[in-house]
């Protein structure tokens, strides 16, 4: 039985300031929406993302080197686009933000037939692993670009752009290799981690990926803003608004 209070109450500070329920979905819509609009502008209205030895992630791999000059970014961006669109974390964010399914936990929803991910087209999200495989290929190209960003016509050097590109590819690697499908692939699909020699190695990998995976949502946002910042920087260099400071 609860005893009525004997001292003035309550004494504990209320736990944090709780944001209203609509803040998170609205922030998602604003962030993803504006990145989407920016991407459309970048992809469809530019023919190059190259500035010297720097290459914007929107244009990597550089298909113009392979003779393709018609809206070159389009040949590239569908991979990261579909990779992120089928990412388990972004799925949560857009189902909440854009579909209000639910907008926030325990919020009432409009009544209509709900099929979740059981029907086309949302069931295609089950193919996420294939987008992961392609995204890993793109990451290899981005690392290659990053190495080249340190090689200037007069040899090794470090510009602000080189560092920005390095930061970007590190963030993207964390995002890509913290993926749930990758976690499943390296070891999550096993039921026994000790039954075979190879399973022991896979347990080690799985543990590492699990540690990264617990921050997958953060990697998703930071790496998206990283790509955005890198592209804006290189676009400003190309248009002559900025001058790239050489540090070494």
């Amino acid at each position: 039985m609860a005893t009525p209070a004997t001292v003035p109450a309550p004494q504990r500070a209320p736990k944090g300031w709780k944001l209203p329920w609509w803040v998170e979905p609205t922030a998602t819509v604003v962030a993803l929406g504006s990145f989407g609009l920016y991407s459309i502008w970048e992809v469809f209205f530019h023919t190059t993302g190259r500035f010297g030895n720097y290459l914007s992630p929107f244009f990597s791999p550089d298909v113009t080197a392979w003779g393709i000059h018609v809206i070159p970014a389009v040949w590239v961006v569908w991979v990261p686009l579909l990779f992120r669109a089928s990412c388990y974390y972004y799925r949560k964010e857009y189902y909440r933000g854009f579909f209000a399914d639910p907008a926030a936990c325990a919020r009432p929803e409009r009544s209509r037939v709900y099929r979740g991910e059981t029907r086309f087209p949302l069931s295609l999200n089950n193919l996420h692993r294939f987008m992961l495989y392609l995204a890993i290929v793109v990451i290899l190209f981005l690392w290659d670009d990053t190495v080249r960003a340190f090689i200037f016509p007069n040899g090794f050097g470090v510009g602000l752009g080189s560092l920005i590109m390095l930061g970007n590819v590190i963030l993207l690697s964390y995002y890509t290799f913290s993926c749930h499908a990758f976690r499943h692939l390296v070891g999550g699909g096993l039921d026994c981690f000790t039954c075979r020699a190879r399973a022991v190695t896979r347990y080690g990998l799985w543990s590492r990926v699990s540690a990264w995976n617990s921050h997958h949502g953060q990697w998703a946002w930071i790496s998206m803003f990283g790509v955005w910042a890198t592209d804006v920087y290189i676009r400003l260099l190309i248009s002559g608004v900025l001058h790239d400071p050489r540090l070494i």
Binding site: R91, K92, Y95, D101, C105, R115, G116, E117
Partner: peptide, 15 residues
């Protein structure tokens, strides 16, 4: 079991 109906919006995990 209907696993496909879950759209991984994580409210279960939150509560």
């Amino acid at each position: 079991g209907g696993l496909g109906f879950c759209n991984i919006t994580k409210c279960c995990q939150e509560v």
